[in-house]
């Protein structure tokens, strides 16, 4: 048998190793405390009927196996919120297309372009609660800006934007697109400015028209940005909560505007079913994980880089 050769470390090396371990320990402990343990705790909670009482021991005494998951898969209200959440995702491609168009417009040297860029970015840095309240007023049936415009232009009263099962979803999507547009524009602008001019010059020499340049140069070379926006907005899209909480009355007419996270919140903090709410959060995490993984899997077929 071969024995491993023994290395004797110098005092300095030992000290360095110790410091190295200390430096590594900070993020490692942080990860265990704030990531790994909460995940394990959430998994454990999801296997109980815990209502928050009597700490960890109280939780484990209410162990119920996979009951919460079985119930969840039969819970029509949960699936309704899943469907609503997915419908809201329609706003993602809409926002991306609009963002790209506006970014291309703002990528030109036109007067006032900086002011325009700033204005589009204002919603991004504004408080989500504040702008949600603002938009709830925009959509107000009698006094809302939207219906006042409709009445002025057509002479007819506008619809009840937040009081109809379909319109409430449309209203939420419009709001989300507006709120997220600034981010897409900024990212696309950065992407556009990274495309070397020489590519367009070469295309011009080859006689390419505007559409061909856009289709064969701009779009493919923006694909990493598109991919980034897609992944982050998809994750964000599954977490919609504040808008629903602020703009609707208890999830809207017939619970038509409620999202997965809104339902989770109600279960956890209004009826104190922490076990059930944890099960919802884990199923949601799995859904997001699968979609994100699929995105990464498929991206190699369409995401192109300059290299």
């Amino acid at each position: 048998m071969n024995k491993k050769p023994k290395f004797k470390m110098s005092a300095m090396a030992k000290r360095e190793e110790r410091w190295g371990l200390i430096f590594v320990a900070a993020p490692a402990i942080g990860f265990v405390l704030f990531m790994a343990w909460p995940i394990i705790f959430a998994i454990l909670t999801s296997l109980t009927k815990w209502n928050g009482s009597k700490g960890f021991a109280g939780m484990m005494s209410k162990y119920c196996g996979l009951d919460n998951y079985v119930k969840l898969f039969q819970d029509t209200k949960f699936w309704k919120t899943v469907l609503t959440t997915v419908i809201y995702l329609i706003g993602i491609p809409v926002g991306m297309i609009l963002g790209l168009i506006l970014a291309m417009g703002m990528n030109r040297k036109i007067p006032g372009v900086r002011v325009l860029r700033t204005m589009y970015y204002v919603p991004v840095i504004s408080s989500l609660v504040a702008v949600s309240i603002l938009w709830a007023w925009v959509y107000n049936y009698d006094y809302g800006l939207l219906n006042v415009i409709i009445k002025t232009l057509t002479g007819h009263h506008g619809p009840n934007w937040l009081g109809d099962e379909i319109l409430i979803k449309v209203s939420m999507i419009i709001f989300m697109v507006w709120k997220g547009l600034g981010t897409s524009i900024i990212l696309y602008l950065a992407g556009l400015q990274n495309i070397p001019r020489s590519y367009y010059e070469a295309a011009m020499v080859d006689g390419a028209n505007g559409w061909q340049k856009f289709k064969n140069i701009t779009l493919p070379l923006l694909s990493p940005v598109t991919f980034y926006i897609l992944v982050t907005t998809l994750i964000g899209g599954f977490q919609v909560f504040v808008e629903v909480q602020v703009m609707t009355n208890k999830g809207g007419i017939g619970y038509s505007a409620a999202t997965i996270v809104y339902y989770l919140y109600e279960k956890a903090f209004e009826s104190y079913q922490l076990g059930y709410a944890s099960a919802i959060s884990l199923v949601l995490a799995v859904i997001v994980f699968i979609i994100t993984a699929l995105n990464f899997k498929v991206q190699k077929h369409w995401v192109k880089t300059i290299d």
């Binding site: 990531m35 790994a36 995940i39 977490q239 959060s281 949601l284 995490a285 997001v288 994980f289």
Partner: peptide, 8 residues
């Protein structure tokens, strides 16, 4: 997974 749950 941690990132996803953390964000959630």
């Amino acid at each position: 997974a941690a990132m996803v749950i953390g964000i959630l």
